[in-house]
């Protein structure tokens, strides 16, 4: 569903909605996977990101997103220097990713304390983005909602119990998608919500005992 505020927007630092604003949003979403600014980031640029990224500030915008800056933040211009001061060590490489992602794509490998995440972000045009995989699970995280991602044992009734925890906090679920590598293996859930998700929800979900890993991703687009 396309929103007119996606079309008339975002308000952003130029020059490219896909290579600058989209890159920043990918960084913001990926940052959520490790729960904050990572200490280490490997950014592997694919396709047009690899070919024309430098002149578009794609490098600056991705790092800015990892630092938690939004696409209209003029600090994007100085993000590489700011990252150095804030202890974010980053490295860029050029690559060709498998599975034929969108021509504007990047694989991010992030570390923050004992948390790590590997994700592929795609910039779809006009600043719209998606994460298409997280730690090898195929996903479709667009950042149009407040998003909860988690892995849990693949067991009967798990969705009902998770939904009950969210209902307790008056969080309305917009979409829910489940993927797993094989029957009986861990399930990976992406739950997009209308309401802001407090960090305490993560603790409540882990308290169920069979939820291994929970992350809250911010809404990054209108």
């Amino acid at each position: 569903m396309v929103s007119i505020l996606d079309i008339i927007g975002p308000v952003m630092v130029g020059p490219s909605s896909s290579h600058t604003a989209g890159a920043c949003r990918i960084g913001l979403l990926a940052r959520g996977l490790v729960g904050g600014t990572p200490q280490e980031a490997l950014l592997e640029l694919h396709g047009s990101f690899a070919r024309t990224g430098e002149g578009h500030g794609t490098d600056k915008a991705l790092v800015a997103g990892l630092l938690g800056f939004r696409p209209d933040d003029v600090r994007i211009r100085d993000a590489l220097d700011i990252a150095e001061r804030e202890g974010l060590r980053f490295r860029f490489e050029k690559t060709t990713l498998d599975d034929d992602p969108h021509p504007n794509a990047v694989r991010l490998t992030l570390t923050r304390g004992d948390r790590t995440a590997v994700t592929v972000g795609e910039s779809l045009g006009a600043g719209r983005v998606r994460l298409s995989s997280v730690d090898g699970y195929p996903v479709d995280v667009t950042g149009s909602y407040h998003t909860l991602v988690l892995t849990a044992e693949d067991r009967r009734g798990s969705i009902a119990k998770i939904a009950a925890v969210l209902a307790e906090d008056a969080i309305n679920i917009a979409t829910l998608r489940l993927s797993r590598r094989a029957r009986g293996q861990d399930a990976f859930m992406v739950i997009e919500c209308d309401d802001v998700i407090p960090e305490t929800v993560g603790d409540d979900l882990r308290a169920l005992g069979w939820v291994h890993w929970v992350r809250v991703l911010p809404r990054v687009s209108a």
Binding site: V13, P15, S18
Partner: peptide
């Protein structure tokens, strides 16, 4: 020109066509 200089614009629909 503002866009090309990494200034703040509204992408509508994109930055390149802003």
């Amino acid at each position: 020109e503002v866009n090309a200089a990494m200034g703040v614009i509204v992408a509508a629909p994109t930055a390149g066509g802003a």
